[in-house]
Design a binder for these strands. Sequence first.
DNA 1: CGGGTTTGACCCGCGC
DNA 2: GCGCGGGTCAAACCCG
Length: 254
Amino acid sequence: MDAQQYIFHNEKTENLESESERLGRENENLRFLIGIMSSQLKILQEKIQKKKEEQIINTVLNKNNFSYDTNERIRTEVPTVKISQVFVRASSEDGSLIVKDGFQWRKYGQKVTKDNPSPRAYYRCSMSPLCPVKKKVQKSRDDESILVVIYEGEHNHGSQRAYEISSSSPCSMTDSSIPNVHRLNASLDLDLFATNQEIQNPNQNLVEDYNNKGKCKTIEDYVESFTKDPTFSLALAKVVASSINAQQPNMNHT
DNA sequence: CGGGTTTGACCCGCGC
DNA sequence: GCGCGGGTCAAACCCG
């Protein structure tokens, strides 16, 4: 092997090494992207599930507000009873239907319903003998770690802990002092990067923008809206790129 | 012993 | 009228 061939092979080796390095970095970036996409897929799937449950409950509520006779005429309007529904992360894994919401409840019944293998528990507020509030607690059909709580009526007394789900904003999933509550009636919470604070902030305007669209009625509408909107893909790509850049500050900008 | 839970029985509305 | 299903009652039981 002469000197020229040696230099040629040397350059070739260096090129291969740099190419290998580049592919390694690219592979790492792709793994990172897959990780982000997987987590976002999971979040979106959870939101779709919650939205479906909301639609089911709304159907039930519509039935409760009015009753019709066989001629489709409004016969009576049932006195409006304040009804609210919340999803609560089960506080224990022993299967109990206990929801700590600041009030004292007395259980007066339990039934297995047709559409859900988990029993539904019936509670009355026991903080005041005259308090008309009732609540129904049942595990979510598809996710047993989620409890579906339906409150009926309004308390005629204060709460011991001054914490009432029906008037509170959604709580942090990491706050262990209070149950994890997701109000169905709350505006759709599209924090696409809730698990990564560093990534979330640069995207805040995007999230608010999509929250404010207000034209979508279901999660599926949102997903369809996102996929059809090229600005969403662009914004998403920017956020992902910025997050990669934050993790690898020495990365070349092209 | 008082208060809460469990659970089978009962009630009631609705659809067929 | 009958059956079904959700909601409630109430006696028995449990627990601190």
